[in-house]
Design a protein around this nucleic acid. Structure first.
Lengths: 97, 97
DNA sequence: GCAAAGTAGTTTGTGTCACAAACCATATAT
DNA sequence: ATATATGGTTTGTGACACAAACTACTTTGC
């Protein structure tokens, strides 16, 4: 069968990031605070994982101010969307019995 | 939603081990050489991952001789089978959109 | 006005671990 | 005897997940 493990993108495969990606996949965008609450992650973790996703070109991060508070908005890029779909396809393939 | 990342057993989630588990899930048992070929992994990697799965109580490893050659046979334990089904259920849940 | 507490994140330190290369033991072929 | 193959295990190292500590501001008592 030669199902290769490397078919599963490591950046997406990490559970924390998989969760972030699935959330971002179903909305146009989401802010940091929302993601933090939705995923139950600590701010530190969320920050580093978002940075990693950004580094991979999967997520676009935009900073602005809402009133006087900083606001970080996250959005899947086209590349990220495609990579997620690919990942999804591959892991379902691995799991199909 | 509160889909917790920790619902995905880290021992199983690792791609290499996920592959081993899916292979073992559909056969009664498999030997080292077969798994090596089927997964495309190096012997060293396969060895350490099997040891890890054994340590988690998911795989039973039996050593014997086939003629004059050593033979390592691997088999899912009941616990391993159950854990895999659980993992499968959880990741499908995460991925359901 | 100013200290304490809250909000919104980022950076740092530490322990874990995946991977391949090196190694070990034995058997077979030249 | 030397080389090559088989069937693995052990070791070294670089990557990285995680939480705790920290930065930078803002709001709330007093």
């Amino acid at each position: 069968m030669a199902l290769k493990p490397e078919a599963l993108d490591k950046v997406i495969h990490e559970p924390a990031r998989l969760l972030i990606m699935t959330h971002l996949y179903v909305v146009t965008d989401a802010d940091f605070v929302y993601l933090k609450r939705a995923t139950g992650m600590t701010a530190g973790n969320l920050s580093t994982h978002l940075t990693k996703l950004e580094g991979a070109g999967f997520v676009k991060i935009t900073k602005s101010f809402q009133g006087k508070k900083p606001k970080t908005t996250c959005k899947l890029t086209a590349k990220g969307r495609k990579a997620f779909e690919e990942y999804r396809k591959n892991i379902l393939e691995v799991l199909k019995t």
